[in-house]
Every structure is written in C-alpha cells, then in structure tokens.
Computed example of a mutant assay.
Amino acid sequence: MRTNKYVKVLQLGMQNEMEYRANYWLQMAGFMLPIMTQIFLWLAVFGSSGQARVLGYSLPEMLVYVVMAGVTGKLIATGFEYEIATDIKEGGLAKFMVQPVHYFAYRFCRFIGGKAVQSAVVLLAAVILLLCLSLDGHIGFELSHILLYILALPGALVLNFVVYYALSGIAFWVTESAGLFYTLSLVIYVASGTVFPLTIFGDALARLFSLLPFSYTVFFPVNALTGKLTVLEAAKGIGVQWLWIAVLAAVSRWVWQAGLKRFVSVGG
C-alpha cells in the first residue's frame, strides 16, 4: 500500500505535466531559443578570434556544451519551491501532517513523474539538434562520453531536487519568498554552468564553484559528455554528487524540522 501510494503520486506528476498541453509545447519550443542564440554566438566568437580553443574548449566541444547545458538545465529544473511556499503560507501543508504521506517523498515522486514526461521530449530535441550539427561537420561523439553523461545525470537530477527542497524551507521564515527564490535561482543558474562554462570566470572563481554543489548539476555532467573528464575524474565527480546529496538531505531535514515548529495552519 505504501509503495502504491507513491506510485500514484508519480503518476499524478506525469498527468500534471501534460495538463495544459499548449503551454507545455510552448515551453518546450521556448527553451530551444536560448540554445540557438548561443550556438550562433559561439560560432561568431570562434570565427572572429581565429583561435582553435576558447576558454579551454574547441569549437565542437563548445557547441556540445551549449546544447547539452541548456538541455541538462531543463531536465533538472524544479519550480516546486513556489508550490511549497504556497503550501506553507496558505496552510495547505497541514493536510500532509495528518495524512500518511511523507511530504519529502510526495514532492520527490511528483517531481520525478513530471520529469519522466518532460525528459523524453527534451532529449529527443537535443538528439535532433546534435545530429544536425554533426551532419554539418561541427561535432562528433564517443560512446564512452555518452555513457559517462548518462551515469552522471541521475545524480544531477536528485542533487538539484535536494538543493531546492532545502531552500524551500526559507518560506517558514519569509512570508513572501517568491522574489528570494527567483534571485537564488538566477545565482544557481549561473553557478551551475548553465549559461556559460564556469571557466569563463577565471581559475580562482572556477575552483570556488567546484567546491559548491551547483557545478555538479550541469557543468560536471556536460563536461563528461564533451570528453573533458577522464573515467576516474567522472567517477570521482559522481561520488561527490551523491556526497552532496547526503549532506543537503540532512540539511533540508534540519531546516524543515526547525521550520515546522514555526508553522501555523491558517486557511487551507
């Protein structure tokens, strides 16, 4: 019964993702526009610089990075932190406190259910785009690099979930937290390497970012795909991913235990 309960939640996440289909397909089309913009940007940068490598990347490596950073960022994107803030503010969290449903497990299953639907479309779009670039002679792939990316992706997905679940606990202390979430999301978006490779910030900041969990959500798995990492480095990075997951899961547990002591159900 307990397993079946969370399977139903996962199915609910899948159904919710496709509830507004026109909006869903518009979002899927919209996420491609920044990727196409960056492709043309880096083609112009490499063409005007006359250099074989920029920021430590060749043109093929940079094109793969741009496409897959956008794709990976979309695959692991959350958004549930705003829903959690609403549950806390309006008292909706109270029903989870009296029902035999663990809120963390509920949110995680619903998150994974939505990603199951989204991932198929996003990855298909990525394959088509990368194939077009490879036919144009710009890029090629090695099977070992693809396998390393696939192995790193689950850790990136779970890590991003626990990062935002921990941050969502801020709503216990900040009544109007939407603006704060938006600001933190922008910082994480940059620090994860979704916009540009982290090497663009120089060696010192790149090393600093490597000490934070955010770079292991996008920068690390995409570098595995571009061939910037050896098998040993990739294995070490995956280990660091799951270490951060354990640490942040403990942090989120502490934050939520402290926050629930402040929670008052008003409305709902």
Results as ranks from 00 to 15, higher is better:
residue 176 E to T: 14
residue 185 S to D: 09
residue 6 Y to F: 05
residue 215 S to E: 01
residue 206 A to Q: 06
residue 207 R to C: 06
residue 88 I to D: 00
residue 99 Q to N: 09
residue 208 L to F: 15
residue 39 I to C: 06
residue 219 F to N: 04
residue 267 G to F: 14
residue 250 A to Y: 11
residue 165 Y to N: 02
residue 70 G to H: 10
residue 13 G to E: 05
residue 76 I to H: 05
residue 34 P to D: 02
residue 26 L to G: 14
residue 199 T to G: 04
residue 120 A to P: 05
residue 144 S to V: 14
residue 170 I to K: 04
residue 50 G to F: 08
residue 240 V to E: 02
residue 139 I to T: 15
residue 111 F to L: 01
residue 245 I to K: 01
residue 134 S to A: 15
residue 16 N to L: 12
residue 231 V to S: 11
residue 171 A to S: 15
residue 61 E to D: 02
residue 194 T to M: 13
residue 197 P to N: 13
residue 218 V to L: 02
residue 268 G to R: 14
residue 8 K to G: 03
residue 264 V to A: 13
residue 32 M to K: 07
residue 145 H to R: 11
residue 80 F to I: 12
residue 67 V to H: 03
residue 248 L to R: 06
residue 44 A to W: 07
residue 159 L to S: 10
residue 14 M to W: 07
residue 76 I to Y: 04
residue 156 A to Y: 08
residue 80 F to W: 08
residue 210 S to D: 09
residue 107 R to E: 00
residue 225 L to C: 08
residue 39 I to N: 04
residue 190 V to P: 01
residue 109 C to I: 04
residue 219 F to Q: 04
residue 67 V to F: 11
residue 190 V to D: 03
residue 128 I to E: 01
residue 176 E to R: 13
residue 145 H to E: 15
residue 234 A to P: 00
residue 13 G to V: 14
residue 55 L to C: 05
residue 231 V to R: 02
residue 47 G to K: 12
residue 190 V to T: 08
residue 180 L to N: 01
residue 199 T to L: 11
residue 106 Y to D: 00
residue 226 T to E: 06
residue 247 V to T: 13
residue 265 S to N: 03
residue 164 Y to E: 01
residue 16 N to Q: 15
residue 192 S to H: 05
residue 119 S to P: 09
